[in-house]
């Protein structure tokens, strides 16, 4: 694990495993749990397999393999995993709240426009401004083809589909700049379909809403 993290180098501005917000952090934890469990299961299966060449000859019963290992073992593990995944999924949903900030994102080939419910008429291109430490609902739609909205350090991704509005909950723990990506293949300009999320502290956010710094 440490070597892998070292491989990541110095920059983690797009890394889902270097979270900077509660949603991404929850999912990153989920990933480390999944990795640990998967590694253990893989080693267990590899051991069983290797033992076939080592074990002394003798009768082998069918039930422990088919019912014990084939049915009971995965059903137990998967039930726990499914429950964990659904609980986490529920926690990440965009539920209402007094503190929630609503912003609107419209994707097109190959740019993003962002609008703000708290500052009607205000539109930013390829830069999404949010307050740090407050939950933000991004209402996503598309003007042409299907796009994806992904800020890896803050939350999972969600598609922007023409004619539909999808809502993604994200939150930044601290002020700063976070890399954002168009995450659904959308033609020749795909690699450059990026944006930046700028999280402000409380005063910076008020200043942004008031139209300062334009």
């Amino acid at each position: 694990m440490t070597t892998l993290v070292a491989l990541a180098g110095c920059e983690e501005s797009l890394s889902a495993v270097h979270p900077a917000g509660p949603a991404a952090a929850t999912i990153a934890t989920l990933w480390w749990v999944l990795l640990a469990g998967a590694t253990a299961i893989f080693l267990f299966v590899a051991g069983l397999l290797a033992w076939a060449w080592r074990r002394p000859p003798g009768e082998v019963a069918e039930r422990p393999f088919v019912i014990g290992l084939g049915l009971a073992f995965p059903l137990t593990v998967l039930a726990a995993l499914l429950a964990y995944g659904l609980v986490v999924g529920e926690r990440l949903l965009p539920r209402g709240g007094a503190d929630v900030v609503v912003v609107r994102a419209e994707a097109r080939q190959w740019a993003w426009s962002f609008g703000y419910d708290d500052a009607p008429g205000r539109v930013t291109e390829d830069e999404l401004h949010i307050p740090a430490g407050r939950p933000v609902d991004v209402a996503l739609t598309s003007a042409d083809v299907v796009h994806g909205f992904w800020v890896p350090r803050l939350a999972g991704k969600l598609d922007a589909v023409p004619g539909h509005v999808n809502v993604l909950r994200l939150e930044a723990d601290a002020p700063g700049r976070y890399g954002g990506l168009g995450s659904e293949f959308n033609g020749v300009g795909y690699v450059g379909h990026r944006f930046t999320v700028i999280a402000h502290d409380a005063t910076g956010w008020q200043a942004f809403l008031a139209g300062e710094g334009e």
Binding site: A16, I27, L34, V45
Partner: peptide, 29 residues
């Protein structure tokens, strides 16, 4: 044996992406 070593890993990562929140990060990467 190469099948076992490879497919078991693929199956385990398959279970990972079956978990919805993890897939939200892993999808299309």
């Amino acid at each position: 044996l190469a099948f076992f070593a490879t497919f078991v890993i693929g199956g385990l990562t398959g279970v990972m992406v079956a978990v919805v929140p993890f897939d939200w990060q892993a999808h299309d990467t």
